[in-house]
Structure formats: C-alpha cells, structure tokens
Amino acid sequence: MAILEVKDVNKAFGGLKALNAVNLSVEEGTVHAIIGPNGAGKSTLLNCFVGRLIPDTGSVIFNGRSLLGIKPHEINQTGVARVFQTPEIFTDLSILENVMIPAFAKVDGSFRINAWKTVGTRGEVRDMAEKVLEEVGLQEKRDIIASSLSRGDKRRLEMAMCLVQDPKLLLLDEPTAGMSRADTNNTVDLLQRVGTHITKIVIEHDMHVVFSLADHISVLAQGTVIAGGKPEDIKGNPKVQEAYLGGRTHECRNGETGRNGSGAVRGRLFLLPGAAELLRRELYRSGRQLRCEAGRDPGIAGPERRRQDVDAAYHRAHGRSATA
C-alpha cells in the first residue's frame, strides 16, 4: 500500500521550473531513495512534503490526507518527521532534553500548557527518550549540552529526535553529507538497525549508501522523475547514466538564470544588475564562458572586477578554475 502519493507536482521559482510534473509513490515500510544531480529539485520536493513550500499545482497525499496547505507542525503531528541536511537541534539544551521535546510533541500534542507539574513527573516520556538514546548510542552523553557534540553525533541526535516520535514516514535529507567514511558506515548501520518498520525517504549522493539502504530508487533530473525502480534496474539504466552518473560538466553562459545539459543553474549572486552586466560583458569580450557545476553558484559579483579576478575568486571558492 502506498503511504505517500505524489501526483503531478509542479513548482516554479520565477521563470525557473524546479519541479515539473513529478509523480511518486512510496510504499509503506520501504526505504525510498531519491537521487539526482544538484539542482534537480530533490530538496524542493522534500520541502513540499513538510509544508515549507507549497507546490503550484498537483497533490501530495499522505495516508489518505492531503499535506498541501497545512502547517509544518500539523504535518509532523500526522506522522511525518524530517532530518535536515545541516542538523537542526536544540543546541543550548542537553541531549536528553533534545530527545524528550519531540517525545512530548508525540504524547501531549502540538500545544498544551502543562506548566505546573515538573518534567520529572513525566517518567514515561523520559523512558521513551532514554530508550531511543540507547538505540542510537548516545545514552552516555545524555546530560551534556548538544552544541558540544561532534558533527556526526549531532546527526545521530537529530535522528533520535525523529525516531522517538515513531513517525509513519521519515524524511532524510542527505543524512551522510560531509561525513567521514566511518561515520557514514555508522549511519547506514544505524538506519538498518533502528526503526526498521518506519517508511523512509532518503535523499543521498553517496551511491554506496543508496544501494545499501534503498528498496526503491527514483531518479530526479531537471525537476522530473526520469526513472524509478529497484536498485538493480537503476544501476543499468542508460538515461540515469547520462543524467547523473556520467558526470558531465555543465555550462552557464552568462551567469544568470539558464539551463544546461542536465540541471538548472540559478544565479543567486548577481543581485546588482550593473554587476551582472559588467561581468557578462567581460566574459563575452574574452570569448569565454563561465563554467560551473549545475546548481552551484559561481560566487561572483561586483562591478569593477576584471576577468583574472573573477577567475581567482572562483578558484578560491571552489578550488578549480572558473573559465575554460
């Protein structure tokens, strides 16, 4: 049975179509991976599930209920939890409190003035939190302040905060981004061990992670699902090869909104019209094109820069040359 049904979802930012008629069906109890090159619309899609963005058209049905137009906290209360790309935790509170808070959301609902009894009287909530902390291996650290955790531990903490709610659907946005190989393996291990009954949607770049976790893979490119199926099928799909695994370099002609071989490029940076104009003129005059990975901003602005400076700045930002 499908727990999440996404039909014909479109979302445009200005002239840029981020999502183009996306259809997706997530089976209950499975791990569903969404992969695709940068700028393909993966995060946009995820944001549509949790109420951060509202699609222009289309429908998102979770467990028979539309998720469109309802607030993030209401979506969570229907059983959707989310792990962010950069861990969103309560940095000033202790680990135990960090996990107890979502447990309270589960037990007491979205708003309740329980100001008279102390937290200490709520043993059941504490037990829930401690149990999950044990599962993710943070029980030793439960009394320290969350901000002093290592990056990997913060991820694990956020995972625990979601698991304690025992959600029906868990969304993981690049759960291993920026992790070392060992930490990545730990995370994979954790996901295979804990909350196995929870349906999960994983956005991930690390193919090792994707192929060890996923039951089903959808490939997103240019805002559209170009392929979907079991991991074995995806591996051999030539379209996927071309769009994602092939690793073509993409070109962005003038540093402004444009499209290219596989992903859309957004020019966040050229906020001053004059600056963009100057840069464009400079680049055209030199007969060169600004080359950047799709979806990544080259990081250039300013009116009085010459090409060499542009190169240097780009090089500093991305560790390689901007023009070719």
């Binding site: 940076l269 990081g299 602005a301 300013g302 700045a313």
Partner: peptide, 15 residues
C-alpha cells in the same frame, strides 16, 4: 551596495 546584497561574495572577490 553589492556588499549589502551579498557580503560574503564581495568579500570573496578580494575587496
């Protein structure tokens, strides 16, 4: 004004 819009980027340019 470029700095007002995106301070980090202008900083990247070595200004």
């Amino acid at each position: 004004r470029a700095g007002m819009a995106d301070r980090e980027t202008v900083g990247l340019l070595g200004i």
